[in-house]
Design a protein around this nucleic acid. Structure first.
Lengths: 158, 158
DNA sequence: TGGCTCAATGCATGAAGATGCGGACTGTGC
DNA sequence: GCACAGTCCGCATCTTCATGCATTGAGCCA
């Protein structure tokens, strides 16, 4: 049985590879990949992944990843979950390593990716670790400090 | 009589100032500003302005300006320089390796980073090679094909 | 003026997306 | 085991959005 998280990954991959204009189309692609879902579920997935439907003019549309300054929202989310799931922040040169509660690595890494910061080249999530690749050592130092700050001072804005 | 152009500007101003979640709401705001329009017209305006409706979770939405042209421009740039500077595309698992003309690696890697594609975890540029780390092996396979297409002719969609 | 064409728009309706409800399943505590 | 709570998801339906068609009005020219 395919998990919801796998399906979310699949959706992101599908829309970044091909041009999907309706949820029905997405359902079709997912079914070809053996995800047995309906439009209702895809609608909920799109909402959770915050995908946007971009008008391309003359009535064409395509789904895309939201490239927005939603960063604020993402930061709020990170502030909320960091103290709960992240246990340690360390660094080797330009790589910041986060130790997190088992199973939460990919979720947190996804959030960090969504920050779309220019000083972060990318992230890789394992079981209980996340590697955050800084663009430079200096950038990684600053990141390390920011992450450490998130660890101790958990605020919430709901 | 307010022109279409004026209305378009008003719409952009409204959505950047307050949180608009449906076209009906936008019609209401426009009417308060003496633009006498219907939902049909607003729908066409949104299409022309390429505004996106972003899901905010828990069933909330808001209209926002789309930021996608960036990737389009970057793709054009890549199409232009790929045949000139990239000499080979290869892959090992989820890592795509580009062999490029000496000294051009970092410039091209920067462009690839700017695509901000979720299926690309990150890139690392050496002297004459670029490693592009795909999020999955499947993603890297697809990337390899796309890069190869760019190599021979510059006319595909990404 | 009368007769074109074209852009803009409303109306009515069809298409696409969101959601309330309930069933199936899982995990937890007693 | 049973009861309860939580999550996921399909179905049916409602809401929201897109659009074919008709109308209006502006600009143009004979």
């Amino acid at each position: 049985m395919a998990s919801k998280e796998q399906r979310h990954r699949a959706i992101q991959e599908i829309i970044s590879r091909e041009s999907i204009s309706t949820q029905a189309q997405l359902v079709e692609r997912l079914r070809n990949m053996n995800f047995d879902v309906t439009q209702a579920t895809v609608s909920r997935d799109i909402s959770e992944l915050r995908l946007v439907r971009v008008p391309l003019g003359r009535g064409k549309h395509k789904y895309a990843l939201a490239h927005l300054e939603l960063s604020e929202d993402v930061m709020d989310e990170l502030r909320r979950i960091f103290p709960t799931f992240v246990r340690d922040v360390d660094r080797g040169e330009n790589i910041v390593v986060l130790k997190v509660s088992e199973g939460h690595a990919s979720g947190i890494a996804l959030l960090i990716d969504r920050l779309r910061r220019d000083d972060i080249v990318g992230t890789i999530a394992g079981e209980d670790s996340i590697l955050v690749v800084g663009r430079t050592i200096q950038a990684a130092e600053a990141l390390q400090e920011e992450f450490e700050a998130l660890l101790t001072q958990g605020s919430d804005t709901m």
